[in-house]
Simulated assay, not measured.
Amino acid sequence: MTARTAKNVQASLPKGVQLTGHGKSFRTIDGVRLVYDDHGSLEPPMPPHVGQLLTELGGLVDFPEGALLQLIVDHFTADWRDVVPTVNVPSWVATGRYSPSFPLAGMQWFAQSLPDSSLSVCEKGGHRPQWNEPEDFNRELLAFLRRSLR
């Protein structure tokens, strides 16, 4: 069995789909330390406790690649603009202000397009606000659940 590495996972991706990773260059904006990824996007660095958890779980490249890669490709290529307004359940949109993958304006559009939604912006978070601001994220999630489950 071939060891899974970022390089051979990248080789198995469809043409035009690229993995991204965290680089070593940092910049501080509004008091938030951000790291440039391999493509020049800014993202808060992974908190040490998340890195430790991922190490204990075997890392991110240990997930089954077939279905996961199909989901990722669909996620970034499908156009759901006509479907989003038809969602008929309460929805919570959570994002970090510094997400390189999903700019805040797009997440605001998403929340505004959902009929019954709320938006939470973690001010120091990136693509994974639950990693960078777990207390704020969890507080907002619980508030959404309380409102939705009444």
Score class of each variant (00 low, 15 high):
105 A>C: 04
36 Y>T: 10
50 V>L: 05
17 V>A: 04
105 A>V: 10
113 S>L: 01
82 D>Y: 04
24 K>M: 13
142 L>S: 11
59 G>A: 03
41 S>I: 00
57 L>K: 04
11 A>C: 03
121 V>K: 01
30 D>P: 00
106 G>K: 08
142 L>I: 05
96 G>D: 14
43 E>C: 09
39 H>G: 04
116 D>L: 03
117 S>M: 11
56 E>Y: 01
150 R>G: 13
86 T>S: 13
1 M>V: 12
150 R>M: 04
90 P>N: 03
119 L>V: 06
122 C>Q: 14
17 V>G: 00
150 R>S: 11
31 G>E: 00
23 G>F: 02
33 R>G: 00
118 S>N: 01
55 T>S: 15
67 A>P: 03
73 V>G: 02
78 A>F: 07
9 V>C: 02
55 T>M: 13
18 Q>E: 11
23 G>W: 03
137 F>W: 14
56 E>L: 09
86 T>C: 10
52 Q>R: 06
20 T>H: 09
101 S>P: 00
147 R>I: 06
67 A>V: 10
84 V>Y: 13
32 V>W: 09
37 D>M: 09
130 Q>R: 09
145 L>P: 03
18 Q>I: 03
44 P>V: 11
131 W>I: 08
139 R>M: 09
92 W>M: 06
109 W>Q: 05
136 D>P: 11
45 P>E: 08
99 S>I: 08
105 A>N: 07
87 V>R: 07
3 A>K: 11
40 G>D: 06
15 K>D: 13
141 L>E: 08
77 T>V: 06
71 L>E: 03
53 L>Y: 12
100 P>V: 12
25 S>H: 04
147 R>L: 08
150 R>P: 01
65 E>M: 04
98 Y>D: 12
117 S>Y: 10
116 D>F: 02
84 V>H: 12
1 M>C: 07
38 D>E: 05
30 D>A: 09
12 S>T: 08
68 L>A: 06
43 E>Q: 14
22 H>M: 14
113 S>V: 07
107 M>L: 12
137 F>N: 12
46 M>G: 03
10 Q>M: 06
74 D>K: 10
18 Q>G: 00
9 V>M: 08
17 V>T: 06
42 L>S: 04
85 P>N: 11
88 N>V: 02
78 A>C: 02
110 F>E: 10
77 T>R: 09
41 S>W: 10
21 G>T: 09
24 K>R: 13
52 Q>F: 08
48 P>G: 10
120 S>I: 00
135 E>Q: 13
65 E>L: 10
42 L>C: 02
28 T>E: 14
105 A>D: 13
41 S>P: 00
150 R>F: 02
24 K>G: 11
29 I>H: 01
138 N>C: 12
76 F>P: 01
122 C>E: 15
3 A>W: 01
78 A>G: 02
122 C>P: 01
63 F>C: 12
81 R>L: 14
133 E>Y: 12
127 H>W: 09
82 D>G: 08
130 Q>N: 14
25 S>E: 15
29 I>C: 00
40 G>F: 06
24 K>S: 15
37 D>V: 07
14 P>L: 03
28 T>V: 14
76 F>G: 15
20 T>N: 03
124 K>C: 15
7 K>N: 07
148 S>V: 00
41 S>R: 09
16 G>L: 05
139 R>S: 13
64 P>R: 03
